[in-house]
Structure formats: C-alpha cells, structure tokens
Simulated scan of single mutants.
Amino acid sequence: MKGMSTWKLKLRLWAASVLLFGLLYVILMLISYYFGFGGPLIYTLLALFIVFIQYMLGPKMVEMTMNVHYVSEAEAPHLHAMVEDLAMKANIPKPKVGISEINLPNAFAFGRTKRDGRVCVTRGIMNLLDEEELEAVLGHEMSHIKHSDMIVMTLISVVPLICYYIFLSTLFSRGDKDNGTLIIGIAALGGYIAGQILVLFVSRVREYYADQGSVELGCKPHKLASALYKLVYGSAKFNKDDLKEVEGVKAFFVNDVSDARNEINDLRQLDLNMDGVISEAELSELKYTPAKISTANKMMEVLSTHPNMVKRVKMLAELS
C-alpha cells in the first residue's frame, strides 16, 4: 500500500506552530516598541496565557457548540464496541464517546491530550451510514487522536483570531492614528491573512493522514470513500442557516460542510451506477482514471478546512 509517513505530518504541524507563534510574537513586540510598555518577557507570557486559555476552554466550547452529551456502554453498546476496538488497534487509550444532538451527518474528535480524547458522532450520521462506513469514519477520527493533530489545531487556530482582534482594535481606536498604530494594524491584518491560510493548509493536510490512518486501522477504503460521498450529499441538503451555527467548529468535522454544495457535481463522476454509494469496484476503477475537478473547486480548496473531496477519494483509491 502506497502511503504517507506520519513523521512528515508531525514535522508540518510543528513547523506551522513555530511560524504562527513566531508571527504572533513579532506583532506583540511591535506593540511593545511603539507604545513603550511591556517587554519581550511580558508579551511572551501574554501570548502563552491566551493559548493556555484556548487550550483549557477549547473542548468545552466544542461541546457547547455541538450540543454533545457523553454516553455509557449501556446507552450505546455498539458505538462503544467499535471505538474500543479501533482504540486498541491504534494503541491509544479509549476516548470518551459522545453523541451530538444535531441532524447534520458528521463525526469529530477533540481533546487536550490522547488520554483526554473524545470521539463524537451526530444523530444525523447514525441514520445515514451502514456499519462498515461508520467504522471507517470512526477510524478517521481515531487517527486524529493518534496523530495528536486535533490538539495542535486547537492551539494554532487562536493565533489568527488574536491578530484579527489586534487589527480591529487599531481600526476602531479613538484619537489620531499615528504611524505606529498604522504599522501595527497592517502587520496584524497581514498576520491574520497569513495565519489563516497556514491554519487551513495544516487542516487540509491532516485530513489526508487521517484517511490513511483509517485504512491502516483495518477499515476498508471503499467504505470510507462511500461514507465521505454520503456525508457531502447529507451536508448539501442541510439548511444553510443551521450550517452557520457550526461554522466555527467545522474544521473538526470529517468534511467541509460549508463547501458540500460546490462538491456535488464533481462527486457524481465517482458513483458510476448512481446507487448512492461508492463500491469497491468503482473505487478500483478510479485508481486508473484521472479524476475531473472543476477549476472553481480547485481555487476554493485554498480557502477550505478540508481537501477537495474528489482528491481525497482518489487517494483512497491509491490506498486500496
């Protein structure tokens, strides 16, 4: 099986973290220089404090946004059994198992450490996927915990947000704006744009590794491909106003729920007999056939939290 080495993922995660926090440090130092207060130590501690708050409150924010409640083995024995089996294969502690009370079909993993891992499914996904498809999606989420990438995403995603608030504070600050304030505002805006693009890049890369991780845990590539296919269609049918409520946490999902409507046309080429699933034969055929992706979707991918879905399914064909 042709795959990607996980050490490359770890290298990218650490490189992105260093770049983003270096960027934040530079902006904070500019503030210190032009306003003449604080110093390198003060702003280092301030940055670390903000990240620590994000690290501690991140899981609770996800739980509240997604209306998560954790279930016991007695409440969801089948779900617990799948998670426990995958955790043993991944050689990680069994994560907490939760159900998100929303109809949007999806799943997500989050937590502060591997021992604090949480895997959740929505009500919508349990009514949509068959057993092997659900197992493949859970394998994808377990791989996020195994790779610890969801922890890094929680930490680095706060950097562009801080830059954005610094930019807003200079934009709406009272009184005359001197050159120092202007430079800080421009630097913060540039930091926000660069940081956001970098966070999105890391978010897309980690999805490829999680897909591969699902296969390495024994899940069938065509079952994961079929699950992804169904999730896109399920997301596309969802109410746009309801999607806005989960916009802030969509990076944790299996697919980019906001971009689902744009991906439908490209995905239709994969379901050759139009039966609503991607069979093993259909995935195998894609292995030797170039996938067609519209120019608009190629451009949109740069601003997406997830890779283009056709490209993901194409990679699964390579892994089959």
Rank of each mutant, 00 (worst) to 15 (best):
Arg174Cys: 08
Met1Gly: 10
Asn308Arg: 01
Pro40Ile: 03
Gly180Phe: 10
Pro307Tyr: 04
Asn255Thr: 14
Asn67Pro: 01
Glu131His: 06
Gly124Ile: 00
Met61Gln: 15
Lys298Leu: 07
Lys60Thr: 13
Ile99Ala: 04
Lys2Phe: 08
Lys89Met: 02
Thr122Phe: 11
Phe172Asp: 05
Asp149Trp: 01
Val310Gly: 02
Ile151Val: 12
Tyr229Cys: 01
Val152Leu: 08
Glu133Lys: 08
Glu135Lys: 15
Leu286Trp: 05
Ile264Gln: 04
Ala188Glu: 10
His80Phe: 12
Asp275Ile: 01
Tyr229Ala: 00
Leu57Asn: 05
His140Tyr: 13
Ser5Asp: 11
Met150Thr: 11
Leu198Glu: 05
Ala194Val: 09
Leu283Tyr: 05
Tyr165Lys: 05
Val232Tyr: 07
Leu41Trp: 13
Met309Phe: 03
Val313Leu: 14
Gly39Phe: 00
Met64Pro: 00
Glu132Gln: 13
Ser72Leu: 12
Ile264Glu: 03
Phe252Leu: 10
Leu224Met: 13
Asp271Pro: 08
Leu200Pro: 09
Ser72His: 11
Leu316Arg: 04
His147Thr: 13
Met1Asp: 10
Phe110Tyr: 14
Lys89Tyr: 07
Gly39Asn: 14
Val26Lys: 10
Val119Trp: 01
Asp266Pro: 06
Lys60Val: 10
Pro95Phe: 09
Leu24Tyr: 03
His147Ala: 15
Leu243Pro: 03
Val121Ile: 15
Glu84Tyr: 06
Thr305Phe: 03
